[in-house]
Amino acid sequence: MEENTSHHVATRTFVFVWIALLCLTGLTIKAAQMQMGEWSMVANIAIASVKASLVLWFFMHLKYEKRLFKLLLFVPIITISIIIVLTFFDIWYR
C-alpha cells in the first residue's frame, strides 16, 4: 500500500470551503441583480469558475494529488476553451 498516499484533510478545512462557496453563491446573485448588462454575465462566469476551482482543489482533493492529475485537468479545459474561442471568432467576424 506504499503508493496509497492518503492525506487527511481537517473537517474544519472542508467547512471553510463550504462557507466560501455559499458566500460566492450569494455574491453571484447580487452581481446578477446589479443589471450590469453583459458584465453581469462575465462576473457570474468568473464567480462560477472560482467556485468550481474550490470544489476541484479541496473537495476533489486535487491539492493533494500528484502533479500528473493537476496537469491533466488542463487538457479538457484548454480543448473546450479553444473550441469556444474559435466558434466565437466565426460569430464576431463573419
Binding site: 453571484t28 446573485i29 453581469s40 454575465m41 457570474n44 464567480i47 468550481a52 473537495f59 476533489m60
Partner: peptide, 25 residues
C-alpha cells in the same frame, strides 16, 4: 473516493448551469 469525484463534478456543472439559466435577469 471515485464516487465522490463523480458527485463533485455533477456539483461543478450545476455551479455553471445556475447563473446561465437563472441569473440572466
Amino acid at each position: 473516493e471515485n464516487t465522490g469525484l463523480f458527485w463533485h463534478i455533477v456539483d461543478i456543472i450545476w455551479i455553471y448551469l445556475f447563473p446561465l439559466f437563472y441569473l440572466i435577469l
